[in-house]
Design a protein around this nucleic acid. Structure first.
Length: 411
RNA sequence: GGCCCCAUCAUCUAAUGGUUAGGAUUCCAGAUUUUCAUUCUGGCCAUAGGGGUUCGAAUCCCCUUGGGGUCACCA
């Protein structure tokens, strides 16, 4: 079992989606199920609705999973395990207030409190795990081996004074309960790992869990929702996120193709920068690969010709949003600069009165003959007339896909 | 600050002790298409610094510097 465990505390960002993607790929490669676990133990930070958004994004990106779980539903197990550890003397009640410990290492004051002092104590208390008596080595598929001393692991809190589990405890218990075999998560969790291993050891859980901690994605606060609104295709976003900090056989690929060759161990270990320019280039390639009808639907039409027209604009546009603007300008009322307003009007009148020309050359010849315009004086206003822009693709190419709408475009 | 990870153009990367240090994105210049944009061709741009090891180092070792992570009753 693999798991992806996001918190419903904000919009999903590119760094988080990358973790989801890698978990999905590895679950397919290893033929193991994938669990989506919503880590919602901090009820104060949870944002209603975010959980639904997470699942919608996973669906949109084609990340299939076999199980889903709300971490808060396992509260009874967390409490039962905490009790168990207390009984086994692997954990102890701690009556210290948070302030004195702040910023310093916990002094272990409550570790050896006599039973009567514990029982008589009216103060709120946390439950801490007794720090391990030996170093713990984490073996990571990407980072290699790291060893942590007992002092680094410390007697950390398992259950808060409100009797809710801390992240490390809930996480370790749930991973055990669901028999998770490989944990892929962000590098920020690397130092949590020895703590979670310590919990497993205290609980007598001996399964050897594999770990892979991904290097930080800098600028990772870019939200998926925003990228989607900007008109990036999910397949382009996943392409980019898999490409980043990775050695891939090619640059443009689908998620399904990546499953064939993806290897966690090839990921680079240093932090990487999210580069939206590169994403734009990749998005453009994916847009090019779409069939015209599909593309036209993405930008609000349902017509193969409009799709082909949009593909022309891919010379300068990289996102669906930009494409909508370009194609929209073709059909929108034209705002003509004074510089060639007169010529524009002349061409417009001629176009509205014109018969249908199947090819651009005939249309152009017709305009040259009746308007007396040529060269720049013809082409600049003509470009504006049929595209609503001052620059853009070849006029002959534009004409091919615009000719059936010519009267509408020129009106 | 302690501990840990990392280090090739601006960015993502290639080069597994022997290459002219390669590609992609960005940027710039020429070219071509009766306008522009595109496209094409070309160009700029890197082994962080210092010591070793070696016939030979981007590659192995050490130090320095720089970047990042972490040190919660958050996840």
């Amino acid at each position: 079992m693999l798991r992806f465990a996001p918190s419903p505390t904000g919009d999903m960002c590119v760094g988080t989606l990358r973790v989801a993607l890698f978990n999905y790929i590895c679950s397919i490669q290893r033929k193991e199920p994938l669990l989506i676990r919503i880590d919602d133990t901090d009820s104060e930070r949870n944002i209603p609705g975010k959980e639904k958004e997470i699942f919608e994004i996973l669906d949109l990106f084609g990340i299939q999973y076999q199980e889903q779980q709300l971490q808060s539903n396992n509260l009874r197990f967390h409490r039962a395990m905490a009790l168990q550890l207390l009984q086994d003397k692997k954990a102890f009640n701690c009556f210290c207030t948070p302030e004195p410990i702040e910023a310093k290492r916990y002094d272990g004051a409550c570790e050896n409190l006599p039973a009567e002092e514990v029982i008589d104590n009216p103060l709120p208390f946390t439950i801490r795990l007794k720090k391990p008596n030996h170093p713990i080595t984490v073996t990571d598929l990407i980072k290699g081996e790291s060893t942590f001393t007992p002092d680094e692991i410390d007697s950390f809190v398992l259950m808060s004074a409100k009797k809710y589990p801390t992240y490390n405890f809930a996480c370790a218990v749930d991973d055990m309960l669901y028999d998770v075999s490989l944990i892929i998560r962000g590098e920020e969790h690397l130092t949590d790992t020895p703590k979670q291993i310590a919990i497993h050891e205290a609980l007598g859980y001996t399964k050897k869990v594999e770990y892979a901690h991904l290097p930080i994605l800098m600028g990772e606060t870019v939200s998926i929702k925003w990228l989607l609104e900007e008109g990036f295709l999910p397949e382009a976003i996943s392409n980019y996120l898999i490409l980043l900090g990775n050695k891939t056989p090619c640059e443009i690929f689908s998620l399904q193709e990546a499953i064939k060759w993806f290897d966690l161990r090839l990921l680079c270990k240093d932090p990487i920068h999210f580069d939206i320019e590169k994403l734009r280039a990749i998005n453009r390639e994916h847009l090019r690969g779409l069939n015209p009808k599909e593309l036209s639907r993405y930008i609000g039409f349902a017509d193969e010709e409009i799709g082909n027209l949009a593909k022309l604009f891919l010379e300068e546009a990289s996102t669906l949003k930009e494409l909508r603007v370009k194609v929209g300008a073709v059909f929108a009322p034209k705002n003509v600069p004074d510089e060639y307003k007169e010529e524009f009007e002349r061409l417009r009148d001629l176009t509205l009165k014109a018969p249908h020309f199947d090819d651009y050359e005939s249309y152009k010849t017709y305009l040259i003959n009746l308007s007396g315009l040529q060269g720049e004086n013809l082409l600049k206003p003509l470009r504006h007339l049929i595209s609503g822009a001052e620059s853009g693709p070849e006029l002959a190419d534009l004409y091919m896909f615009v000719k059936n709408y010519l009267k509408e475009v020129a009106k």
